[in-house]
Amino acid sequence: MNEKLNLMKEFTKGIVSENPIFVMLLGMCPALAVTATLETSLGMGLLVIFVLTLSNVLISSVRKFIPENVTIPAFIVVIATFVTIVRMLTQAYAPALFDALGIYIPLIVVNCIILGRATAFASKNKVLPSLIDGLGMAIGFTLAISLIGILREIFGTGAIAYGVYLPLGIQGSILNIDSPLFNIAILTGPAGGFLILAVLLAFFNSRKIKKAEKLKAERKRLAKEKRAAKAKEVTA
């Protein structure tokens, strides 16, 4: 029971408390570069889920055989292998996504999240927790960049298109809002990436600050009550 709870914790920490983008600030390049639309963000997310989960599993299962002085090169080779595989699969089965993501597919190799999880977690833990950790982190990454992608696409174009980059079999778009507020072209460009990420980070920061203030106030109140109780005792 306890173990199950732990695994659940390993999974959710990547999504919430240790979210790679919004909390750890890792993997910023793809979070800015491929998030002009929801579909490209989701596509990149799927590739990262594939690479991160498999590299975590493989590294964790061979962690005892890899000599300490060559861990990093060995990890890089493992990660690069999975990236190459995923690159070829994308080029074959989702050519539109391959063209849209361009050099950012090979750049998954140097995504700090993946090497980071390999050294910080997979090389020290058993296979199952490593799998859960990789999956959680990758899903957290995917959700985060998809959020950026949704905001950029809605405010930039007023609609969410589907079937353009992912091979869904159908094509179209939803929402289709016709309003100048939802047609801010710069949001689909480079500046929009920086801007939306800034707004989201500030939003999460403000929530963190509020939470911390609440906690502080709560603690203060408790301490005050304790003191009052003590004082009462003394007088009694």
């Binding site: 080779v77 493992v78 070829m88 074959a92």
Partner: peptide
């Protein structure tokens, strides 16, 4: 170990390449 890793990596990439 490095050789084995290299071999495995090369082999799997070659296989996927043949497929794709």
């Amino acid at each position: 170990v490095l050789t084995v890793i290299g071999l495995l990596s090369g082999l799997s990439i070659w296989g996927i390449n043949e497929l794709t």
